[in-house]
Design a protein around this nucleic acid. Structure first.
Lengths: 346, 346
DNA sequence: CTTTTTTATGCAATCGTTTGAATAGGGCTT
DNA sequence: AAGCCCTATTCAAACGATTGCATAAAAAAG
């Protein structure tokens, strides 16, 4: 034993009692004399005894560990979600093991395998951009293995999900641009296989429609990679090629919005007077760029908290009880900053 | 068993052989007939058998899990370190369990307890701002428990550490400001109990001295909290109160630099023409703010890789072999952007 | 002074796997 | 045909803890 950690056996030997007596004494079982309890506890204290969680896991077929699968920690949003998860997990005596997929399906598959080998009690998943087939999840769900999907949720049956109201967030953002007087609004869309991308696109379209603005299909630009460079390039191209230039941009995330803003500025146009820009997520940098970026903030921490709370509920169900599929939708908040203020309100 | 996962026992029963035969067949031990091996492997495949990592951990007193203790995931730098750690851990069959201290000593202590209970094979630590006493680490080190400290390293003996050359980074940053013609350079310092803060301060002082500039103690402003608001406030106060106003700011991190820049701008001064600003860390947002922030970039990913490589080396040592204390120092890179370019080079 | 009840403790199986030592059976040698 | 050596397999202990059941001793009841 690396740490020379004391075990129940050590205590038993030292006190000349059986293992079971020690075990029971430590947990105040009835039927152990006070004298023995005292002695056992004293020695345990002295030897700094701590139960071996691995042995307990094996015995109880329960590891008190949950696995979290996310695309990337460096994404500000995901890192706030992790904080929320950690907070609740910790408070309930659970450990969190983390795997990033780096947006790779292969990584997602192998991470899940690794986590199952380690007997995690449940999984919290936000799948990769490459994931288009959900068999690896349905297989587990069929076996009643607890999974909660968050943010990026699959369109399959009987799942428990936590998302943000992407539709409404996008709708509000786009409406805000329209109300500010921007009429020709382009959309930098996210990867098509993510539900969130579609929902945001739908919100964008609905807002246009509700304001009787016809949408221009050429102005919906998918940004599959999601880097600032990508949206910079695409935005530049959009503004250079088109005759009727857009005067507003709603981007499905802040990185894309930042890239777009740089592209617009590089063409000599001013934000917000010539072009209004709104992003999505409220990254840490969004309030610091110039002009500060209007955006739709998502409650990441809260999402983490909610997701793990649901998961713990599922884990604590009796073996044969099933859970009811549900989707918890958290509300977003439109944060208006300079980048979209055409109308100066005094 | 929640997953109805097949065990060695199931295979043994089905094929009417003993547990040991199955175990050995699966790992191609000599002395098992090819026929038996074939049958065992076939059935294992069919039942989708995967060894139970918990049982293995117990048997081998080795969990193939390492614990990572960091202040906060939302810090861009730390999240890149995590990526580096994960990458190497994963490639070597190790799992990573993560705890954030949120800069609280209490959290640090309880996280370490929890991780030890879970029999982590080693620890990767960047301690909290509150940590001033290192007994909880020395106790473990004395027992030969593998720990590698990264970024924030304690000043105690016989440790293995990975840091960045904070002194040189700060020296370079300050020298750069001086060379650009800024002569009155203030420093927004980090928490005093962190070595990195002191090293950066030292680098700043050394650069001033080497350029024969006398430092003004009032211009060294500790920012213990580390938020943008804090440095905004302190910077504003500095510029309002002093008669001889600084024309340069070297901040010990980018968040502080960003706050300072906003404060300066709010006072009607221009960056970089009136005041030059350089930060530390190269956060994601640093290139996006206006003007883009000059900063000292730290190789976070590489730091993670190096730290876990060292840890795995320690873990793989024989029981009684000791390791030699050492500190790996990674070099920083000065990234010059607009915020510090007084001299316009064409 | 038995018999019954209570109290305190021990035994042994179990969780899933590994591994040193034991063993059964077949073929070979002499 | 006795002895010996392989080869393929099994036994059993171990990792650290829990827990139903058995049991010994002490106390209470008759």
């Amino acid at each position: 034993m690396k740490l020379g950690q004391a075990t129940i056996k050590d205590i038993a030997k030292e006190l000349n009692v059986s293992l079971s007596t020690v075990s029971r004494a430590l947990k105040d079982y009835p039927g152990i004399s006070n004298e023995t309890k005292r002695k056992v506890k004293e020695l345990a204290e002295k030897l700094n005894y701590r139960p071996n969680a691995i042995a307990l896991s094996l015995r109880k077929s329960k590891s008190f560990t949950i696995g979290v699968i996310i695309p990337e920690v460096v994404h500000f949003f995901f890192s706030t979600v992790i904080s929320g998860i950690e907070e609740v997990a910790f408070a309930n005596g659970y450990n969190v093991i983390l795997c990033q997929t780096n947006e790779k399906l292969q990584r997602e598959l192998s991470s899940i395998e690794a986590m199952l080998d380690n007997q995690v009690d449940g999984l919290l998943v936000s799948y990769s951009k490459e994931t288009e087939d959900f068999n690896h999840f349905t297989k587990l769900l069929k076996q009643n293995f607890p999974i909660v999907f968050f943010d990026r949720v699959p369109e399959i049956e009987n799942t428990v999900n936590v998302t943000v109201n992407d539709f409404k967030g996008a709708y509000d953002a786009t409406s805000h641009l329209i109300n500010q007087g921007y009429k020709n609004i382009a959309h930098l869309a996210g990867p098509k296989n993510l539900t969130i991308s579609r929902k945001r696109l739908d919100g964008y379209l609905a807002a246009l429609q509700d304001h009787s603005i016809k949408h221009n299909p050429d102005w919906i630009i998918p940004c599959p990679i999601g880097t600032q460079e990508e949206s910079f390039e695409f935005t530049k191209r959009l503004f250079e090629n088109e005759k009727a230039k857009p005067d507003g941009i709603f981007a499905s995330n802040d990185i894309a919005a930042a890239g777009a803003m740089m592209a617009v500025k590089s063409l000599g146009l001013k934000v917000p007077s010539d072009v209004g820009v709104v992003g999505f997520s409220d990254w840490q940098f969004s309030s610091m760029i110039d002009p500060p970026l209007s955006t739709v903030s998502q409650p990441g921490f809260q999402m983490g908290e909610k997701a793990i709370s649901l998961l713990l509920e599922m884990i604590n169900k009796k073996k044969d009880e099933t859970w009811t599929p549900k989707t918890v939708v958290l509300e977003t908040e439109l944060i208006i900053r300079k980048s979209s203020e055409k109308i100066i309100t005094e």
